[in-house]
Design a protein around this nucleic acid. Structure first.
Lengths: 198, 198
DNA sequence: CCATGATTCATACTGTCGGTACGTATCTGC
DNA sequence: GCAGATACGTACCGACAGTATGAATCATGG
């Protein structure tokens, strides 16, 4: 074997493991996928997986973060494109929905991760990667932090539901237009609505 | 032991098992709860559980349906109370959110059930028990079946998100008013919005 | 009322899998 | 080039889902 640094070895192994985890967890689900299977698909053994991740749940977490990271990268690209607040929000929602066309993404991010990692952990990560964008839009529209946070979460819940419908749709291409239109409408409705005191 | 009919024996055992499953699955989660623990809490052994349910997942399904059944019963009560469409919808949403104050309900219905039973199974059951009410309201408001179905799902997604926020809130009583107000606003916005062709 | 069959349930067992312990190979810094 | 650290493979353990298998308990036709 050629000589590699420890950093390179670690990077190659963890990358292969995360790639395998995304593929297997996404296809068969977390519970139905053994660590041995993930390690084998990555070309290593369980020992490597436990050395780098420490368990099965952290492996899912890594796969989960990788999925979110991809969407997040596209979102910051949109934000950097200089589009106005409104169209950036619409584009962001559409980007998220398109990712949901991949059943593996939907399964890992919206089905298995909350059950395995816990709802709060998942929502914290999602807030960091995705929700903060939506929330910023609502803060600007309403001027109320708490109200904006609440509305962003509600919108995000609707987006996830739309994403799952897409992921399980027999003809996703046919459903995408209606779903994007309706989620857009929902966002607009909440941005326009007044923020009364509670 | 006193003499009982088979039907009575079955009923007592299954009832006890479902009760124990709701308590344990709701508190510790599905993955962290063994069948032996559920059976022991019900005063029987694994054999009885497998005889009546056939596995661990069907046990969760029974607990899940029991949780939904309770909400559903309240919803038909509201529907039968003769309230108008609008206030019935608001009352229904509030009823659902109040159930979410029980962390066991939230965990079983919105976190574990989708991962274990599959998203489609869960949403089919939820449609049967809860969603059909919301959908009927939107059909009446928009006149479009497909549009109404889509909007009902989006609203339901937002409701679930609100429910999880409540379930994990440090001070649920303080969050309930804002969340009910905002979900109501969301429903109103979508009912009022026009249904354009896609 | 009893004998035969069906149902309910407990007990003992097996296989799988997550996790751990430990040994070996590979790399780093002195 | 040689201690110490890091990466990884292998052998093992315990927990637990699922499967017989048999013993009670109940139903039913004679």
């Amino acid at each position: 074997m050629i000589r590699r640094t420890q950093a390179e070895r670690t990077d190659e192994t963890t990358t292969a493991l995360v790639r395998a985890a995304r593929a297997l967890f996404g296809a068969a689900g977390y519970a139905a996928t053994s660590i041995d299977a993930v390690a084998a698909a990555a070309g290593v053994t369980k020992g490597a997986a436990y050395h780098h991740f420490g368990g099965k749940a952290p492996l899912l977490r890594a796969a989960f973060e990788a999925e979110l990271g991809e969407v997040s990268a596209k979102l910051v690209g949109i934000a950097a494109s200089g589009a106005d607040q409104g169209s950036a929000l619409r584009l962001g929602a559409r980007t998220f929905l398109q990712h949901c066309l991949d059943p593996g993404f939907a399964r890992i991010v919206m089905v298995d991760a909350p059950a395995v990692l816990g709802w709060e952990v998942v929502r914290a990560a999602e807030h960091h990667h995705l929700l903060s964008v939506i929330e910023a839009g609502f803060v600007m529209a309403t001027g109320d932090e708490r109200l904006a946070a609440t509305r962003a979460r509600l919108v995000f819940g609707a987006l996830c539901e739309a994403g799952m419908m897409l992921a399980r749709s027999a003809d996703p291409a046919a459903d995408l237009p209606l779903l994007t239109a309706e989620t857009d409408r929902l966002v607009e409705a909440l941005k326009a609505a007044p923020g009364d005191r509670d």
